[in-house]
Design a protein around this nucleic acid. Structure first.
Lengths: 190, 190, 190, 190
DNA sequence: AATGAATGAGAATTCATTCAT
DNA sequence: AATGAATGAATTCTCATTCAT
């Protein structure tokens, strides 16, 4: 296992893995991922120690990608309502723009191969966002629940929203708005 | 005239499959399922044509089981609020009482091996419950969304609730109540 | 392994085996044979000790069937030429009328599962015919070869003839005649 | 840049397949073939896509091998009689020298797993030989039959000859001569 | 005697990973 | 470092045969 040289290749593998995992689930063969990345089967293993490492790093990469999209041009100066809506919309946009990333994430999220450690690291990336969500909920119906619970509820509603948009894209705008209302009602109440 | 096919054995296979799929995902080996059921590897295939058939029938069996639990002693005469809460509580109770069933369901739900036909049949079993949820939402924030969307939101919040209870069972009661509030706020609004 | 009761059933199994072996070769599953015969999988084994026994008995049954067709209304009083041609024509007719029997025979003939004993018994059934062929050849080019060799040559030419007729049935008459000429030239010379 | 695929290994697999198919028929397990070739079970599938591909390529390889032996040092300048006899003798010699190849061929020839395409390609390799046989027959008893028919008759007689030689090798010379006479009489007539 | 469920030893692949080139 | 052939354990499914009914 020599030192990998090219960041490009690593990214190509992660990108191919996204597609293949979205399509075939976590049991997708590493050979297909390598092929999708345009590298040899063995090369994959100079960039990732084994398949589990690849999956865990993919999980994290997707989490970060998602987080970056959600906070790009974040309107830090605005009200928490504005910021909440902003993040919501960026999240939905991300899922709609990158359905394979979204599907790969759902596969990984339920997989036994993603370690607790990886999940925790994924959480961490969302620290700021979670803090904001926590503030939103601080005098809503979930005010006594842990921030993670609140964030998970938001996440769950967003996923439903993205799924429905994908199956019925003509009503994307409506679903996006409705999802937000559901999220806001559930979290902030009123 | 020969040994009749045994409903018990079929159930044993489904039950073993629940455990094994919950633990290892849909790529769990059929051999492990057979072993868990106490039958020979080949016997599994006299009860299920192939692994896909088994997974699809398991999905349906779990859906039905869930539905039956949710509607056991259903208080049909009570207000829709009462009934909504009743179904919610039964659902959470089911998930908490049978964590393996719940986990198997999440694995199956995201699997490409579950056919559209099976998913549709699963939906159908929830016709009555979905109708009720639809009524709850009929003058809430989601009143213009399809019933399936509303049901999916409820489902998503319930799953989050069940997960948190499992990880932190001491606060089960609190999560259950909080989840309900979130659900009710999202769906019925106030 | 109780005593079989019905000759009909035994024949149904042999008949189904003919079809199935012709189509799928000797590795055809016994279950398919049983199904073709309209009996249960297990029943097959009360009529035949095991698959090898079935195949060997099928071989013999086909040999006998073939022999019977070849000698039906045998013109014992006619010249050896007449009788030779008669047998030839009956043989070709049999193969054309019962292509599945013919194909099953080719599969069985090259199978390792047919014992030497069975092959010898098959030979025996052709004693009379072989004797006749021997007489035909007695002053032809093969006069110093064992009767079995002469018979095998006839057989081989007949099989080629039947195959060509099956693939090109419009010229059946021509192939039949040509095959006979080849056979007669090879065996009787002139 | 990786280890190149080895022609030797491919040949070893084909050679092992010859032995195993000759002995056990086309249902011979691939594991036995791999073992015979001294490679891992999986390696077989880097050289042949699946078992059918292996069998079809084996069929062709044997056909080519046979053809090459039949035409080695072919006396192109001699009379057609000389050339006919030459080819005949080479053919018989091949079958006697390589009984496993011969037996594998008989198994493959009657197998449903050999495609029409493969059979056609096999035919093609014998173009020159068939042309010669056709010339031999051009004023014999089979002059109005398609060349393929004539070739098939020759082939059939040769196979009988090889089988008898194998069972009774002491009289090899006699069978070889007798077979030739039968062949020549059948094809060329006098 | 007949049935067909039960069995478990194969069968053909597949696949993560290693390693020669 | 990159390649892809090599490996062999694991996987799904088949099938001859047995045996409970």
């Amino acid at each position: 296992m020599a030192r990998p040289r090219s960041e490009d290749k690593r990214n190509a593998i992660l990108s191919a893995a996204t597609t293949v995992v979205a399509t075939l689930g976590v049991s997708a063969p590493t050979a297909k991922i390598a092929k999708g990345a345009g590298v040899a089967e063995g090369t994959l293993f100079t960039y990732f120690e084994n398949k589990d490492a690849l999956l865990n790093q993919l999980y994290l990469a997707l989490k970060h990608d998602m987080r970056d999209e959600m906070t790009r041009d974040y309107p830090a100066a605005q009200s928490v309502e504005e910021r909440g809506r902003y993040v919501w919309e960026r999240y939905i946009d991300w899922g709609v723009a990158f359905p394979l990333k979204r599907k790969a994430m759902s596969q990984l999220a339920v997989s036994e191969r993603i370690s607790g450690h990886t999940r925790a690291a994924g959480m961490e990336a969302f620290g700021e966002i979670n803090a904001m969500i926590h503030r939103i909920s601080s005098d809503g119906p979930l005010k006594d629940q842990p921030p993670a619970f609140v964030a998970a509820v938001m996440n769950a509603i967003a996923e439903v929203t993205m799924e429905f948009i994908e199956q019925d894209p003509k009503h994307a705008r409506r679903y996006k708005a409705a999802g937000f209302v559901a999220f806001w009602s559930a979290i902030a109440g009123k």
